[in-house]
């Protein structure tokens, strides 16, 4: 993906609405947000999509080397979120500590922005 072009511009927009295999693509709203954030950052040129993909492969690989293949704790989007966090740190889009702090603010409802 070329960073100079918007992702949306690159994609066809004249198709009728399908569902992916008739099943929900995202099980929880946060999964859709994490997905969208990762793509948006790539489309805006903060990293190459391939860099994200490599980060995702590493994240999945770490989990799989630490768990049995049938481990029920598997969550694709948790691995996706970890890959995203690693990209944010690598590209210095967030500074160490601020993500933990803001997460804590959301957890104890000191913040309640809705996205």
């Amino acid at each position: 993906m070329e960073p100079s072009r918007s992702l949306i511009d690159d994609l066809p927009a004249d198709q009728a609405p399908p569902r992916a295999n008739g099943e929900m693509v995202f099980a929880e709203p946060w999964e859709a947000r994490a997905f969208g954030i990762a793509l948006a950052l790539s489309a805006d040129g903060h990293y190459e999509w391939e860099s994200f993909r490599q980060s995702l492969i590493r994240s999945i690989g770490r989990w799989e080397s630490a768990h049995a293949v049938e481990d029920a704790g598997w969550s694709y989007y948790e691995r996706w979120l970890e890959a995203l966090e690693n990209m944010l740190a690598e590209c210095e889009l967030v500074v160490p500590g601020e993500l933990d702090q803001r997460t804590e603010e959301f957890t104890r409802r000191a913040r309640d922005e809705a996205f």
Binding site: E28, R33, A34, I37, V94, E98, L99, R102, E105, F115
Partner: peptide, 19 residues
């Protein structure tokens, strides 16, 4: 936790004008 963390990421990136 994942939901809160994702919100935190989006909140920070919006605040910084990154997205």
């Amino acid at each position: 936790h994942s939901a809160a963390r994702t919100k935190a990421i989006e909140s920070l990136l919006l605040e910084k004008g990154i997205i």
